[in-house]
């Protein structure tokens, strides 16, 4: 593949529970949430990679690992061929500038005691993006870029609506001229009509500024709309990764299929009354053996309970982690 800008290689991440003295004396092993279990994916320059999955699948943890907000426990994050965990001092700062993150909650991710001007000029000054004399002009330019009025600069975050705040978050991320934007649930806190505005803005900015975007979301319709490629995550692993159109037309993993069938379509003529996936997400503390999805999979065989499926090719740039070559997408698990 051409021009991989950012990639995760076999990344794992655990969050340990507090290990009490009593538990230590008893010799119990420390318990941990296994948030990421060997995630590998590549992000090519200029593309939008959608990362989709249900809550607890590790998509936000992965996003944070990609920008090095979390240190990984195993595996590597590579940026332009260099392992980012070794970056120190100015090199790390440059990496931080070139890979920016936008957060989900527009209410808690902006400092309520700073005006928009202070928020933006802080970023510009820290990374020495512009000489002091040009900062005001650059702020006006940034606000124009995200379609906020110039007088927004002197106001505080609480004076803005959710959608406008998310635009301020985008302006702050763009102020340091990054190459990669990691957007974690960018629009999930917004109303439907405002979501569309922010999505349109993101599409437009990406074309204008040639950005690479990692779009993390739980809403399949949205991910389908804006991504070139989609990676589907389940319990801290990537179960399928491929071009958007292919994934949606021919899912090769039963979980992807279940997600697609569960998402309600905006078409009242296409209703189904069959439940797409029975059961619930197993606990990330005690992971199932074999394929992590076997507890909910309608096609599970004995092999799935013991042997972990690895990602294998199902087409050009299309991989899935399933023992089956084909399955009937209409079959659902009706055990109850």
């Amino acid at each position: 593949m051409t021009d991989i800008i950012l990639s995760a290689q076999n990344v794992s991440k655990e969050f340990l529970f507090p290990h009490s003295i009593l538990a230590r004396i008893r010799g119990e092993p420390p318990r941990a949430v296994h948030a990421l279990n060997g995630v590998s994916l590549d992000i090519a320059k200029g593309e939008t990679l959608g990362i989709v999955g249900e809550s607890g699948c590790g998509k936000s943890t992965l996003a944070r690992c990609l920008v090095r907000l979390h240190e990984t426990d195993g595996g590597r994050i590579m940026f332009e061929g260099a392992d980012v965990s070794h970056l120190q001092g100015p090199a790390r700062r440059t990496f931080n500038r070139r890979v920016q993150m936008i957060f989900q909650d527009p209410y808690s991710s902006l400092n309520p005691r700073m005006t928009v001007r202070q928020i933006l000029s802080e970023a510009l000054r820290v990374h020495r993006m512009r000489p002091a004399a040009q900062i005001d002009a650059r702020i006006a330019e940034l606000l124009d870029l995200v379609r906020l009025s110039p007088d927004a600069a002197n106001r505080y975050p609480h004076e803005f609506s959710g959608g406008q705040r998310q635009r301020i978050g985008i302006a702050r991320a763009l102020s340091v001229e990054p190459e990669v934007l990691v957007a974690d649930e960018l629009v999930s806190a917004l109303d439907v009509s405002v979501q569309a505005q922010v999505v349109n803005l993101l599409l437009e900015l990406q074309d204008r500024l040639h950005l690479t975007v990692v779009f993390v979301a739980h809403d399949l319709r949205l991910v389908r709309h804006i991504s070139h490629r989609v990676a589907v995550m389940y319990l801290g692993t990537v179960v399928e990764n491929g071009p958007t159109a292919e994934i949606f037309a021919h899912p090769n993993h039963p979980y992807t299929n279940a997600l697609l069938r569960a998402a309600p379509e905006v078409n009242p003529t296409r209703r189904t009354r069959t439940v797409a996936a029975r059961g619930e997400l197993p606990s990330p503390i005690n992971l199932p053996s074999g394929c992590l999805f076997h507890t909910r999979c309608p096609h599970a065989m004995d092999r799935c309970r013991t042997e972990v499926p690895v990602l294998r090719a199902f087409g050009k740039n299309h991989v899935a982690a399933c023992h089956l070559d084909t399955f009937d997408p209409t079959v659902t698990k009706d055990t109850k």
Partner: peptide, 15 residues
Amino acid sequence: SVPQAGAERSMLLSI
């Protein structure tokens, strides 16, 4: 405003 199948990476009709 709701993203549709078959209109990938196009502008949504936003309000």
